[in-house]
Design a protein around this nucleic acid. Sequence first.
DNA 1: ACTCTAATAT
DNA 2: AATATTAGAG
Length: 487
Amino acid sequence: MAYDAVQALQGFYGIKEDASFDPSAGLVPLTSSLIPPLVAQAFGLPTLGGAPTPQPQPTLAQTQHAQSVYGTMMNPALMGAFGFSGAQYAATMQPQSHLAGLPMGYLQALAAASQHHQQQQQQQQQQQQSTAALLAQTAGALHAHTAALAAAARAAPATSSAMSQPLMPAASQDGTAGRAASCEQDRTTTTATARTSSGPPSSLGAAVRPTPSLPFQNPLMVQNLYAAFAQPHPAYVQSPATSFASTLAPYAVHSYYARPHDANAAAMAAAAAAAAAATSAYGYPQAPSSAACNGAFHPGYGATPLDYSAALAAAYRPVAAPAIPVPSSGQQQCQSMGEEEYMDDGSTRAIKRPRLVWTPQLHKKFESAVHKLGVEKAVPKNIMQEMNIDGLTRENVASHLQKYRMLRRRDVTSSEGRDSDSRTAGTKRSEPESTRPAPAATTQTTSTLDCSGGAASALTVPQPISSSAALLAPSSAPSSATATPVM
DNA sequence: ACTCTAATAT
DNA sequence: AATATTAGAG
């Protein structure tokens, strides 16, 4: 097993690197046994924590649904790891059709993954050859496809945001029609609407599918694969950097949240990217205020407070059935975590409390608590108690309060310097943020545009940043009255 | 033991 | 940039 992959997996699962691990010795660090056994098996890692338990066979309907969701090119071993039956996939798989729309880098990554696995399992030579053959074949097909696409584009300027497929799986139910359905969905949900639908179907139009889409729609798996094999994920390489950072950040961090800090920066990045990918992919088609959280692989979500150890357990437990994304929404920040992590030998070790994310909901609570308490009593401890959030510490509040006050002070002094009102500290004036640009539902977030389709965009750009968002979006400057694009 | 601010770390 | 942590003083 490539050391890189081990690292990536560990990072993905938030496992701390064992400093004593010597890659050259071919040993897998003890902590790697925390990787779900089935995943470990899929990646050829030795597992110390006992043999993987056999997964229940999915029904055919499940398989087909999952196939429509995740695509057909999953590494069989991975499918096993994630609870799919490879054989059934193979049976329902249509060897050529799914190759047509794939971007090259993606294919290569998959092929590389597949090749890697095969090398693990068996003799390398023949396998390599067949893989190479497949690659060559694929390359040929892709080449032709690309050429045809280009021709089609010349004929009718129909563009396609290559990676913009809305990742909510719901629509397609059968494998073959799935991609067509996806394109259909693209047309209706993204802003490519006009261009795509208005373009008169050229003679090539029927033969050439306009939108190469990701067949692999479980973001965690995808990201895991890419991370494990050090491939940049095309969708996130291509999408503007602003995407998740701005509107989706509260949700993105959420899932990432329940994982312990990891010293490995690269792995951290991978995990964060995975979380972001998951967020975008799952779409959140409903308003953030509604619905419940879905637990599957998102330890951070849930209406009920989460115990950190439970989150760990959930993360480490391979899911038996495909975690079909259930639309969920930003909920109140709920978190409470244990303080120990179980190690292989049964002992425990203190782990770092995950960094708190001040979601809008949480901040709202904070603000109302502050207001309720009044200037005098609005001190960290009181606020903490008033908020009554499980797991929220005084330090959390103190830190936030510090920033809150700073902003508040700055706002006051800048907006009314001449006024006689220059308080010393802890000013809890009335809200000066009457400046409400009220952006008329204009700008789509790039992220939502790119990654999750229209429904999500409507909701990930929730309110026009009212007063409560001041802390989270500090730039509610009175000067920039107009745009304030989704910050 | 708590709070505050500033500075610094992650 | 956002949050955590720490220091030092009250």
